[in-house]
Design a binder for these strands. Structure first.
Lengths: 205, 205
DNA sequence: TCGAAAGGTGACCGGGTGGTCACATAGTTA
DNA sequence: TAACTATGTGACCACCCGGTCACCTTTCGA
């Protein structure tokens, strides 16, 4: 069960929003372990007992909020994989769009980031998420190999590992985003992906 | 001041070791925030008050233990950069040796890993450590470019970013090490570094 | 031998946590 | 209006934390 109770949905819209807003703010500010339920209920202006009528416990509240964040991100990135013709162009689109998501929904972005920072509480969930990502990536990679875009001789697991690591860190660093140099950020993303595509080693042709 | 007090050094060797061992175990099991001083003193078999005669506070104890871990790692990796002729070979040596360090000193390895997982308490320290690493890497990279090993056209900041991210994740994953497949692990490290060296894009020659 | 200094102790402090429950209130139905 | 249910409440619970301090014990030099 990771749904709020019926009681929560019966609440007036404004109150629901106040609770969600307070929880989002707190889970964006601190990872699950350090986030404080007491602070959330204080900010939302409700009693602690009430919260336990809406959500089974802290964990369920968190998962609900996390779902909101992920739903928004999924919506935001929906069309990135639509024309999956060019492997490298698609990856660039993906990370550029992720950056824009972080700018537009910084709190959701932070919540998702905190979730990926390893936390014992969600070890299993994270592992399965990672495997899903791996499958998606490897499917794309296969197709790119068939298209003749990607070197068929490389270790595909290693390739996923590299993209996963770099992507994670890349998105982590979106936190330090300043208004002005958006163009610079986007260029850096491209530069990083170029390094991954071309490799460091000089090409003897 | 990040030294233990004189009182600590006056302690009989065995007692010092008991304290260090208990602290190492705790800081390996949990990151700084979640590590418990109470558990450490309990495991070491001393009173909490005593601990505060040896170390100013939890932070100083932690930094002392962290230093022990880093000193051991430095000793272990001492000769990796001795023959820095081949850029890619050196990097492989570095990560392979790091893996062996993780196998030989798993607790120290975990302590260092926990430290690098972003934690507000040590934000500054981590940032400066990262800058030092960046400088070292960029120096090596420069030399490799001059040697004709590395493509001079790539964005060097991006290259560091890529190596830093992948290295971090690679070393993180050493935690799940099983006795038998050491060879397999070392091969995977090589595979990952090959991906970084050669890139994913197919080479048209 | 005695007294001062150094070392060791654990109950205690203030503050935090997630979670509970007896009670108060509001809403609805008969 | 009365009875009953659904909702709201915050004092309270047990448990943890890092850190302190008045007191006790040991050591050691005069």
């Amino acid at each position: 069960m990771k749904l709020p109770t019926e009681t929560f949905y019966n609440l007036p819209e404004a109150k629901q929003q106040a609770i969600i807003e307070a929880a989002v703010a707190e889970f964006a500010a601190s990872p699950y372990d350090k986030a404080s339920l007491s602070k959330i209920v204080a900010k939302a202006g409700i009693a602690k007992g009430s919260m336990y009528q809406y959500f089974e416990n802290k964990r369920e509240l968190y998962l609900y909020i996390l779902d909101l964040a992920y739903a928004q991100k999924k919506r935001f990135l929906k069309d990135v994989f639509d024309q999956a013709d060019d492997f490298f162009a698609t990856l660039k689109r993906y990370y550029r769009r992720s950056y824009l998501f972080a700018k537009e929904f910084p709190l959701y972005h932070k919540i998702i980031n905190h979730y990926w920072d390893y936390c014992a509480e969600f070890e299993e969930e994270i592992r399965t998420s990672r495997e899903l990502r791996a499958n998606d990536f490897l499917t794309m990679l296969q197709q790119a190999i068939e298209n003749g875009q990607v070197n068929p001789e490389l270790n595909q697991e290693a390739a996923f590992f590299v993209y996963h690591s770099v992507g994670k860190e890349l998105i982590d660093n979106f936190i330090e985003l300043s208004e002005t140099d958006q163009a610079q950020h986007l260029q850096f993303i491209d530069a990083v992906l170029d390094v991954l595509a071309e490799g460091l080693q000089i090409r003897k042709e």
